[in-house]
Structure formats: C-alpha cells, structure tokens
C-alpha cells in the first residue's frame, strides 16, 4: 500500500467527491488559486476550475451562511476554515442555521454541508488560533463531529462526511498534515459513528481522538517496554455520533481507562466519555477513570512551554501508572 500523508489523503477525498457529484464544491479562504493555506486543496483549482473551488473573502459568517443556504437547495458545499478557531465569528450560522434548520422546519429542510479545517494547539500561534471546539460543537444536536487521527481515517471519514445528509464538521490537525500512513488506492469509506481499536491490549484502555490517539499509542509503547503494561488504544474517530459500544467493550476487557483528549478538561469530550463509563461500566472498573487533557488555561505561546501544556506521552504514562497502581 502506498504511503500518503494526511493532507494528500484529504485532497484525494475532495477530488474524488468533486468528480462523483456535480453538487460538491469547495469554498473558503485561499482554497483555490493560493492552493490552500495549508495546501490541503493543492492542485484542485487547476483541475476543477472556478465553479468547484471558490476563494472566499475573509467573511466566515458570510460564506458559511452562504453554504448553508446553498445546501438547502441541494448543493453540497465543503467549507474550509483556515482554523476551526475562526468558527466563533460564524457561530450563529453554524449552530442556529446549520444545526437547527432541519428541526425547526419539522424535517422539511436538510443541510448537507461539511465544514473542515484544523483544530489543534501545538504550533505556537497563541490562544486565539489554538482552539479545539469539537466538544462545543458536539453539544449541538443536529450536527455531527469527526476527528481523524490518521491519513487513512481522514480520507474515509471525509468521503462519508460529504455524502452525509446532515451537517458534518471535520476536525483536522496541522501537526498531522505532513505525517504519512498507508492508504489503499481503491475507494473506501469509513462510516461516521464507528471507533477503531488502534492497538489491542489487556491491561488498560487509552481512549482518545485526533492527534491524541498518536500520543496514546506512544504512551502504550512506553508502558509495554518499561512497565510491562499492555495498553489498548481506542480511537473514537467520530465524536457525534459516538461509538459507545466500542468504548464500553474495551473497558469491560481491561477494567481500567485513561482518557486522552486535547480539549480543556471542563466539559471536554473526555468528560462525556467518563460520565458514560461510570454509568455503563461501573462494575467493570477496577480503578477510577483517569483523564489527560490540555492544561486548563488559554494556549500559551512560548514554544517549549506549549509542549508541556498539551497532552504528551509522559503525562499519559504517569496517569496510566496511577490508574494501574
């Protein structure tokens, strides 16, 4: 299988869906002639032209609202946010219009949009550009949120997101764009709402989404090599809908859980998982659930210190050792 980076995997997904469905178009800042601020849409404008790749002015509320309106008439806009942090200026369009229009119309109107872009810290761009709003958005019934950790998952989830008839928000990661994974050449889809066990284990479940999955995998290696602990790593892939069965099944096997999550701790995705586990797997747990989140303050700029603020393998190992003690 060919090694393809996360950025190219998304690029391929977009190209394939543009070719498959004439109603799919890409809109956002610098997505066309500039080839994408993070080069995710590189080459697509040259291939598909102005109609399918649309450079928007810096007006997130305007072009996201435009996408919602266009989707009501059957188009399938894939809207790029240069950073998910910029979603806040378009929050009314995302939550009130994309999130509520089907419900408020009694099911008469659908909103098949995708909004995608990076949502991560770790690039020393300060607090305003480092938000991870998957927990905030997943709080809105009516929308769906996915967070792929690998190139393989990014491509398969993106294609499913574009074909879905509800609004789907894809949380990417600038630190992953250049990372490579094996991606098959033949077409495949990864359904929303299905988690993936990235590493089988017996002693503790490390449950994560997005780049935190890779941190959990690194921690699992250390736990095996240095502490004789065999950790299982569960990648949520999809936040809403959520594959609760996969999470509970893993914890029933290992009886211990550490949740790794780049969200801030308060009402982060891991808080939802912890609440669910205490309700559904209470008797299976041999120890309290541990959580490793981004340290609870706005993202610090200082490059070496920001590394410490984010979840990292060492913090996961420490937490796992506490839970396994």
């Amino acid at each position: 299988m060919a090694l393809i980076n996360y950025r190219k995997a998304i690029n391929d997904a977009l190209a394939e869906e543009i070719m498959r469905d004439e109603n799919v178009f890409i809109i956002g800042e610098e997505v066309a002639e500039y080839n994408g601020a993070y080069k995710v849409t590189e080459g697509l404008w040259k291939r598909f032209g102005d109609k399918r790749l649309v450079d928007a002015p810096i007006s997130e509320a305007g072009f996201i609202g435009l996408g919602v309106g266009a989707s009501m008439l059957g188009l399938r806009p894939v809207i790029e946010l240069m950073f998910w942090s910029f979603a806040f200026v378009a929050y009314d369009q995302i939550v009130n219009n994309a999130g509520c229009v089907r419900y408020m119309s009694g099911g008469l109107i659908n909103c098949p949009i995708v909004i995608r872009g990076p949502a991560n810290g770790g690039t020393n761009v300060g607090a305003t550009h480092s938000h991870t709003p998957e927990n905030i958005l997943a709080n809105v019934p009516g929308v769906k949120v996915v967070a792929p950790a690998t190139a393989y998952d990014a491509k398969g989830l993106m294609k499913s997101a574009i074909r879905d008839n509800d609004p789907v928000f894809v949380m990417e990661n600038t630190l992953l764009y250049g990372e490579q994974w094996e991606v098959p050449e033949e077409e495949y889809l990864i359904p929303l709402g299905s988690a993936d066990v990235k590493r089988e284990g017996t002693d503790i479940s490390l449950i994560a989404h997005g780049r935190s999955v890779l941190i959990a995998l690194a921690a699992a290696d250390i736990l095996a090599a240095e502490h004789n602990i065999n950790a299982e790593v569960v990648d949520l892939r999809s936040i809403r809908p959520l594959d609760e069965d996969a999470i509970v099944q893993s914890v029933r096997k290992t009886h211990r859980a550490v949740l790794v999550d780049e969200n801030k701790p308060f009402c982060g995705v891991s808080a939802q998982i912890a609440s669910m586990l205490q309700e559904k797997a209470f008797d299976d747990l041999d120890a309290p659930i541990g959580r490793v989140n981004t340290l609870d303050a706005p993202a610090i700029y200082s490059p070496p210190v920001e590394k410490l603020q984010l979840p990292n393998a060492q913090r996961v190992v420490s937490k796992a050792l506490t839970v396994c003690a």
Partner: peptide, 15 residues
C-alpha cells in the same frame, strides 16, 4: 441571520 442564507439560495440558483 437569514441574510447569508438568502445569498446562498441565490448562489445555488446561479450554480
């Protein structure tokens, strides 16, 4: 809130 939606409906017509 409806002003960009109206824009989008008209955009879809043109598209």
């Amino acid at each position: 809130g409806q002003t960009p939606l109206g824009l989008g409906l008209a955009y879809a017509l043109k598209y």
